[in-house]
Design a protein around this nucleic acid. Sequence first.
DNA 1: GTCCGTTGCTAAATCGTGTTAGCGCCCGAT
DNA 2: ATCGGGCGCTAACACGATTTAGCAACGGAC
Lengths: 352, 352
Amino acid sequence: MSPRRVTLADVAKAAGVSRPTASLVLSGRGRELRISQDVEQRVLRTAEELQYRPNIVSRGLRTGTTRTIGFVSDTVATSRLAGDMIKGALEAARERGFMLFIGETEGDAELERLLLQAMHDRQVDGLILASMFTRTIKVPPSITASPAVLLNALPSQPTRLPSVLPDEVEAGRRAARVLLDAGHRDDIYLIGAGPALRDVPPESVAAVERLIGIREAFAEAGVEAAGARPCPDWQQDLGLAATRDLLESARPRALICFNDRIAMGAYQALDDAGLDVPGDVSVVSFDDHPIASWIRPKLTTVALPHYELGRKAVDVLFTEIGRDHATADRRGEVHRVPMPVRDRESIAPPSA
Amino acid sequence: MSPRRVTLADVAKAAGVSRPTASLVLSGRGRELRISQDVEQRVLRTAEELQYRPNIVSRGLRTGTTRTIGFVSDTVATSRLAGDMIKGALEAARERGFMLFIGETEGDAELERLLLQAMHDRQVDGLILASMFTRTIKVPPSITASPAVLLNALPSQPTRLPSVLPDEVEAGRRAARVLLDAGHRDDIYLIGAGPALRDVPPESVAAVERLIGIREAFAEAGVEAAGARPCPDWQQDLGLAATRDLLESARPRALICFNDRIAMGAYQALDDAGLDVPGDVSVVSFDDHPIASWIRPKLTTVALPHYELGRKAVDVLFTEIGRDHATADRRGEVHRVPMPVRDRESIAPPSA
DNA sequence: GTCCGTTGCTAAATCGTGTTAGCGCCCGAT
DNA sequence: ATCGGGCGCTAACACGATTTAGCAACGGAC
């Protein structure tokens, strides 16, 4: 098929030197080891002419490093949102000349084990363990075989793995401030969680943290939420029901919805009640799901920075790879990626 | 960090045999080469006990096969739709013990070249060259270095590469039949392309093929489309404008929209005109974009089978890898993957 | 002339596996 | 007793790179 790859031996032969000499020159250690300028130039030119490219598999065998990292997730590739995480990781890796193995576990622990095994069999230099939505995960024991980073996930048990997460607390503050800055102080309601910290969907890290941030920002401004309607799950129909329920007994002037699907339900309930967004009621939300730009008026929301999360995970992984194993005594730090506000059309000053 | 991997030499030593013997037993060629049952059992047991796993990097160096395939696309990972292509490919590959390298070119030829290079440097066993939407692509010359398959793409110049594509012509027939089966014969309009084969967006393979299928099914039934409004691009606002334009001069009883975004625009125009879907006008479309299930009434559409496309691409790639290079004289076949109809709520019998 | 230090390169080992050729043993046939 | 041949395994090389140790040549000092 193809005329066989050019190997280091070919280059050495064509340049009239030994294989190790060619290797030294090409790995940039020529100076250090006193290879003459003459030979150095000859080797470099020959390599260029023959279009030599080192075989990374072979190099991997010798050096143990394959310039490859594994990206294992529960079901990231499917969702559009989290596809951006992969994209961020992909680009950050490419900038360093690394490639990505992708694997999906579908939440199956056995599958996860096999996948990690398959990646270790291929001598990946590091691993990213990603979750589609923020949650605590059980860290598989075999993960310690190489440097690793948790992405969008927290370890259920203390570990030395670093993790990368969206800054949900700050996001909560920002959502609250969007309303405060627009002049809202009264009749602000929460849909999806609250008012107490225990009124959250089970296992939702994001819910708790967003709520904390919201309450912080409110407290700072001396404002208090007028009320809240928690939802057991953050789905559109539950958001619709919760908002409907709220409207029976109250007349909100602003809503903080805990995610965009809930906001979509809220839109519907408000529309049914003849209330205008943002004229009568302002709505702010979280996630920046694609529907946030589909629905009218376009939804102002605090975005999950998937792309940046992916990039950051790779960055952290590289410092982890670079770290001397001897100094690996630090406990897994948590890196927070800021969630940006997407200002759209669902916010207005409070109605008179 | 980890206590070093168990190697074949470890197994051989523990079992009291030579390395090659262990290798032969574990590669299943023990019988063939008359290794005694006794030794065979001993080796197998020891390997099991030590949890031996062959190092694929090393094997790759020796055999040239890394049990790895490369998936290079223009911008697949980002879009939710095409994420399913990756998922299909991922699963099909996993079933055979293969892993996937993912790469995105963003349509940049230079990036593509570098990416293919990086994959060849890692000795991938095969490549899938994917496009997010069906189109003709210029096949990079370096692709011939390994077996390859085009996914959702046709070569702009004749090549021996096989390609995998959605069966758009049959999809066109199916969309037409959805209406015919519901009893529609008159006042059926096309939005997005037609009526002539040249009235299509530039470079859109799908448009031409869908149109052909539609006209075939109509011809078979002795029906003719009442008219058509082509769009230069298949976006929502253009679908809205085209449908609005149509409604000024006609009163359709059924629309075939060339994709779901156009259908969404059509919904809006129909709603503005006070027409009910499907009571007054039935709508059928293509793609099964996520919005098809979001909008009300839910849209009946002929789905792009992304998941199956991904799987099929891997299947075809494997027959390509397995094919003896000597017999590689066959010219690139085109494999068509059926597009299934998603029956939803936008179709009704024609109004009286 | 001998010894030593420097310069500039190469021989050889290594990574973990797969594969080919061949070695020693035992048995039966001549 | 010798030879041929099947049996059961191992020695040795290969894959394509990196890395350590060391060799040859030369110049200068004594």
